[in-house]
């Protein structure tokens, strides 16, 4: 029984209640940092790390945190881990840190983390929370990478910096700008929702 619950937690995270396509959480960063695959991976890893760390802390402390101040506790926890991510990026990946700069700080307000903390971690034990955090982080990362792959292929002709498309192919400059993000994510939402049959009201 415990095992099937774990599987349900994982499946909910990576497909059924997909954070981006289904619940529409964390859209800002999904759009803003998905111009290149390496940025998407860095962002995805950062969010996953913060999710897991927050999940562990909140589910461990869930019985001690007073209800009234729980929001503040989530925020301080999340913000502290975001600072760690920010420092690590700055120290080891200065280039990526430059290009996604302030959006790392905005992980704090990424609704996936707040949403999972309020919706899952406060009411579930350590193991389940850990699994939930991992699967949500994974779902978020692969979505970001998918959007980024399309945008980088068309916008730069490359994947992870390697030339993939033939040189003569003209670069779709718009794909590396904000509108490109909207169109690619919009199309992906359209496709996934058509497949899963989920519709608005």
């Amino acid at each position: 029984m415990a095992e099937s619950k774990s599987i349900k937690t994982i499946m909910d995270g990576i497909w059924r209640d997909h954070p981006v396509f289904s619940m529409l959480l964390g859209i800002c960063s999904a759009l803003a940092v998905s111009n290149k695959v390496e940025n998407a991976i860095a962002m995805g890893a950062g969010v996953t790390f913060v999710l897991v760390a927050t999940g562990v802390i909140i589910s461990l402390l869930r019985k001690i945190i007073p209800r009234q101040v729980r929001m503040i506790v989530y925020m301080i926890t999340i913000a502290s881990f975001v600072i760690i991510v920010d420092r690590v990026l700055k120290a080891y990946f200065p280039e990526i840190s430059d290009s996604i700069g302030p959006y790392v700080g905005l992980i704090i307000t990424n609704c996936i983390i707040m949403g999972r903390a309020e919706g899952f971690y406060v009411s579930n034990n350590l193991g389940q929370s850990f699994l939930d955090a991992l699967s949500n982080g994974f779902a978020y990362t692969y979505t970001l990478v998918a959007v980024a792959a399309v945008r980088e292929l068309l916008g730069f002709g490359t994947l992870l910096g390697f030339q993939v498309m033939p040189e003569f192919m003209p670069k779709w400059v718009v794909m590396s700008m904000a509108p490109g993000a909207f169109f690619v994510l919009g199309t992906l939402i359209w496709i996934t929702r058509t497949i899963s049959g989920q519709t608005e009201d």
């Binding site: 169109f183 919009g186 359209w190 519709t199």
Partner: peptide
Amino acid sequence: MPKGMKGPGIIMVISGILALSFL
């Protein structure tokens, strides 16, 4: 609209076109 487009999908496309014109 196509069913899968309703809601967030169409908002994305509208924002995309408006973002193009804001450029």
